[in-house]
Amino acid sequence: MGQPLLSVIVPARDQAGFIADSMTSLTRQFPDPAVMEILLVDDGSADATADLAGGFAAPLPGLRILRNPAPRGLASARNQGLDAATGRYITFLDPDDWYAPGHLATLTQEIRRLGVDFLRVDHIRHTEGVRTFHRAPQARHGVVLDPRGDIQPSHLSTMVDYPFAWAGVFDRRLADAGLLHFVDGLHTAEGRPWVWRLHLRARSYAVDDAPGIIYRRGVTSSLSQIFDRRQLDFLRSYGEVFRLVAGDREAGRFWPKAARQFLAIACHHLGRSDQMSRDVRRDLRAGIRAAVAQLPAAVAQSGLADLDPKRRKVLTKVLRSKK
């Protein structure tokens, strides 16, 4: 057989309750599913996730299951899939999400037509049976765009505020250039430096009218619903964002956006910190102080001034504290 048209990377840990939905949706993407290489990375599951996925080997002849004896985390599992991928194009699917029929056929057709490095799409959120439509922050669809041109302005939602790896398809030349990999070991906020790197360094992208990815929200096992130390991964994540921006030839252009993003997310976590243990709260505050110290002083001051009074008061108190 020749090169697969598309590699679909599915990192999964303890998803026995949902994996059949995801796999079933993959059987409905192309007239011939053999054009897909499906890399399911079983990241140390304690349930039957891998066995249930393996039951789809007949309708999905390109299915490969990679097993980790112990969990490595979402970012590392995706990287493992990337390292094994051989397809002309690459996409990601979370194991509790699913596709509308023909979604991937539409995306691969469109990325080939436009010849861009990556293609992004709107998505549908499914929360306790209710579906809502969510647009990517770029309204121009079906045309070639400059990724760097869609990072700013800092006060509006832009494409670097849309860090969902599963909302699009990517030319494998990005993977070959090292632009698709995630920061190893991150359990949360893994998409933040990933999307910044793409928009700083890729040559072209587009947004398509194909909201065929259904993103399941409100799952109790989701890390967004858990308040342990893994929530602090956003600090390491933004350390990488700051490194990328600082090394860019137009760092001054992009610092305000990176700072505003970080400060907003820091306030979000501080607002949830009463659900964290005392030591995690302590490390959260110390980490925020250390991260803000990495920002150019004028950028940090401007970012704080732009916050609403309530959030500015909370964050200023943390920055002035020593505990």
Rank of each mutant, 00 (worst) to 15 (best):
237 S>G: 08
279 D>T: 15
12 A>D: 10
80 Q>D: 14
40 L>N: 01
73 G>D: 04
13 R>W: 02
77 A>S: 15
112 R>D: 15
185 G>F: 08
45 S>R: 10
28 R>F: 07
147 P>I: 03
222 S>G: 14
101 P>R: 15
294 Q>K: 04
238 Y>F: 14
269 H>V: 05
168 G>W: 03
54 G>R: 05
291 A>T: 12
226 I>P: 11
256 P>H: 09
169 V>K: 07
133 F>T: 12
113 R>A: 09
115 G>F: 11
108 T>H: 13
84 A>C: 07
257 K>R: 11
322 K>P: 00
223 L>W: 14
203 R>N: 01
35 V>N: 09
243 R>S: 12
140 R>W: 12
68 N>F: 01
242 F>V: 08
126 H>L: 13
276 M>C: 06
192 R>Q: 11
288 I>Q: 08
34 A>H: 06
53 A>D: 11
131 R>D: 14
221 S>W: 03
310 K>M: 10
242 F>M: 04
215 Y>E: 14
95 P>A: 15
320 R>I: 00
195 V>G: 02
177 A>R: 06
40 L>A: 00
69 P>D: 15
78 R>S: 06
297 A>P: 10
3 Q>C: 13
238 Y>S: 04
177 A>S: 06
140 R>P: 01
79 N>G: 09
153 P>T: 13
37 E>A: 02
151 I>V: 03
314 V>C: 03
227 F>L: 11
102 G>H: 14
287 G>L: 00
93 L>S: 10
247 G>I: 00
105 A>L: 15
37 E>Y: 14
186 L>A: 01
292 V>H: 02
255 W>D: 02
204 S>T: 10
124 I>D: 00
283 D>C: 02
227 F>P: 09
77 A>L: 06
45 S>E: 09
62 G>R: 04
177 A>L: 00
96 D>Q: 05
287 G>I: 00
30 F>E: 07
